[in-house]
């Protein structure tokens, strides 16, 4: 979506509604970066990102008639993408167990640094921190995981999350609270294990 200014989205949508294949291809190419970023951020385990992206685009084409133009088209597609990801996350019955022994050397170092107030996480350890965050949020329920990810990693506001997911603000806050409480317990458990 780099060439947002030059892309005639409204015209393209009109042509897609007339079942123009070339316009549909242009639309997919235009929206792919947006969709793939959402998919990569919320990708469930053992699901290929290309398969999930294809499913999202198929839903977009199927529901095209329902788009009324009340919100920007990209927001509407983002919502489809996020709800498709969460459906896949919900379908995963089991969540992987989080074990200290499974952490890589860098991840253990990062965890040690964040749990000790006097140590700072180095800039070179950002990727390990990213991996560690995903291992931790994998322990949460899919809905809680989604909220905490949007709130703390993507730094979206409650209002933005509410609009994206179609949930009311109170529900988003409750889920965020519940997720943070679970994460706190997880950290306490890790601290205890580290000491022992």
């Amino acid at each position: 979506m780099a060439d947002d200014q030059s892309f005639d989205l409204a015209g393209c949508l009109d042509r897609v509604r007339l079942r123009d294949q070339a316009a549909a291809r242009e639309l997919v190419d235009h929206l792919y970066p947006l969709v793939i970023r959402i998919v990569r951020a919320h990708l469930p385990r053992r699901v290929a990102e290309e398969d999930l992206s294809q499913e999202i685009f198929m839903k977009m084409f199927t529901r095209m008639g329902q788009y009324q133009g009340a919100v920007p088209f990209s927001h509407w597609v983002s919502r489809i993408a996020v709800t498709t990801c969460i459906d896949h996350l919900r379908a995963q019955k089991r969540r992987p167990e989080f074990r200290w022994a499974d952490l890589s050397e860098n991840e253990a170092k990062v965890l040690d640094a964040v749990m000790t107030d006097d140590k700072a996480v180095g800039a070179g350890e950002a990727m390990a921190a990213h991996e560690l965050v995903h291992k931790l949020i994998d322990q949460l329920k899919p809905d809680d995981r989604l909220v905490i990810q949007l709130l703390d990693l993507e730094q979206k506001t409650i209002a933005e999350i509410s609009a994206l997911l179609g949930w009311n603000a109170s529900l988003v806050k409750v889920r965020a609270f519940r997720a943070r409480r679970k994460l706190q317990k997880l950290f306490e458990e890790l601290k205890r294990r580290e000491r022992s």
Partner: peptide
């Protein structure tokens, strides 16, 4: 710890290609 961890994680850049 969670705040510090997410702050560090946000510094990770995703360099993967986003073109279809």
């Amino acid at each position: 710890p969670w705040e510090r961890l997410t702050a560090a994680a946000r510094r990770a850049e995703d360099t993967r290609d986003t073109a279809a």
